[in-house]
Design a protein around this nucleic acid. Structure first.
Length: 149
DNA sequence: GCCAACGTTGGC
DNA sequence: GCCAACGTTGGC
């Protein structure tokens, strides 16, 4: 499958992933997003790396799933901003995958660019109030968006 | 910084 | 199980 994964670049950007080569996708604290990672993300899946809460917001590049879902250890770390006191080793509640860097686009495909393209008008991220941080993207949409760059 | 949209919590 | 209150996300 194909995906769109949101990250605030002030927290973790495509440039950070380029430097790190690969990284755990930590801190997802939404059940729907967790379920996508846990139940449907497979090694080799490609995902758009979306910069949210940025000026401007948009898709900055592509990453690839390189480790399937496992417990998000930051939920059990009291010092982590993602700490969840309800998470335990027996019931970690939250999951994450690892992703590896694939490419950084030569220019950001902005949210506005996406809205301008009629062929992808039902893309989840451009719908009003679309807050989900892990979103499935159809193979067709993935290809069209890649070519916008 | 504002606020609409959405998710979660907790009293009943 | 309902739903009001509250918290968060994220574009603007």
């Amino acid at each position: 499958m194909h995906w769109l994964m949101k990250s605030e670049p002030s927290v973790y950007s495509i440039t950070d992933l380029k430097r790190d080569k690969r990284s755990p996708w930590e801190g997802v604290r939404n059940y729907q997003a967790r379920n996508f990672m846990r139940d449907q993300m497979k090694i080799g899946d490609l995902a758009f790396f979306y910069h949210s809460n940025a000026k401007p917001p948009g898709i900055a590049g592509i990453c690839r799933v390189c480790k399937e879902a496992y417990p998000d250890f930051t939920a059990q770390d009291p010092k982590s901003p993602y700490y969840d006191p309800k998470a335990t080793p027996e019931n970690p509640i939250w999951m994450m995958v690892d992703v590896e860097f694939v490419e950084e686009f030569p220019r950001l495909i902005t949210l506005d660019d996406l809205r301008q393209e009629p062929k992808i008008k039902d893309l989840m991220v451009i719908q009003k109030g679309s807050r989900l941080s892990i979103q499935p993207v159809s193979a067709t949409h993935f290809k069209i968006i890649k070519e916008l760059c």
